[in-house]
Amino acid sequence: MMELKEIQRLEGHTDKVWSLAWNPTTGHAGIPLVFASCSGDKTVRIWEQNLSSGLWACTAVLDETHTRTVRSCAWSPSGKLLATASFDATTAIWENVGGDFECVSTLEGHENEVKCVSWNAAGTLLATCSRDKSVWIWEVLPGNEFECVSVLQGHSQDVKMVKWHPTEDILFSCSYDNSVKVWADEGDSDDWQCVQTLGEPNNGHTSTVWALSFNVSGDKMVTCSDDLTLKVWETESVGTQSGGGFAPWTHLCTLSGYHDRTIFSVHWSREGIFASGAADNAIRLFVDDNESQVGGPLYKLLLKKEKAHDMDINSVQWSPGEKPVLASASDDGTIKVWELTSY
């Protein structure tokens, strides 16, 4: 039997904790695990693990920059930069200078709240999305400068999340319009286009899509929604196409009946387990159903952690490192760190 065991409960934020992000360069070769969290208290906190105790402590508070809720945070692949998206309509870029974080750039342009920010795998592109229904793509220039190379219109409502594919420069966006849109550069000079829409007509969600996550090889994706379902999608094997065009995504299965309220977050681990965080205060883990008969369910519930938090869970993220832990962020103002154990 598997169990999700609480390692630590982290306090410090004075309002909802909306999102958290692990620094991808930590957790290896004796480097302590580090993550950032962001909150309705307008701050970002940096948490670092003490290697001897195995517990996290807050090592920095990034404040007095954003004037409203910080909704999302994302580390660059190099781990040197942290991007934060805020309801103040800006995205701030922070650089880690000897343990101190300095705001080195502020990206403006969105008409209202910025909901999410995401780096591509190479760290050369940054995407942001907003309630203004648009998705912006920024090119990362030398000297911590950022140039907007494309403003993508296509969603008919609030865009909740953007996420780059783990290996290809393909961007995915989730929206209040119930769809996921797939964007690719169709030319050689930043001609970004919507190449596919995963909406209700092709087995898509029937309410707001809040988040998505890829498996380790990038050929499967899981999406979560206000319609209380998780959907898994797949594409033809990524990376083996030689100079070919975009490979479309198809619906694989829908996991319904497990969640009582809105699912705000989903994250797929390198080990193949995906975690969901929901408004029923529970964390659920799902895994491949190897024993499934032909035509049977493809994924099964591994476990459900009831009352993981006192309130809605807004973000669940598996850490990097040899033995990943799971962190969760909640409306109760806390972050919890969990490990998956067997007993």
Binding site: G40, R68, T69, F87, N112, E113, T208, D226, D312
Partner: peptide, 14 residues
């Protein structure tokens, strides 16, 4: 749908 989107509620109250 709008009344029960807690993110939009939070943003509206700011």
């Amino acid at each position: 749908k709008q009344l029960n989107d807690k993110e939009r509620v939070a943003a509206a109250l700011e």
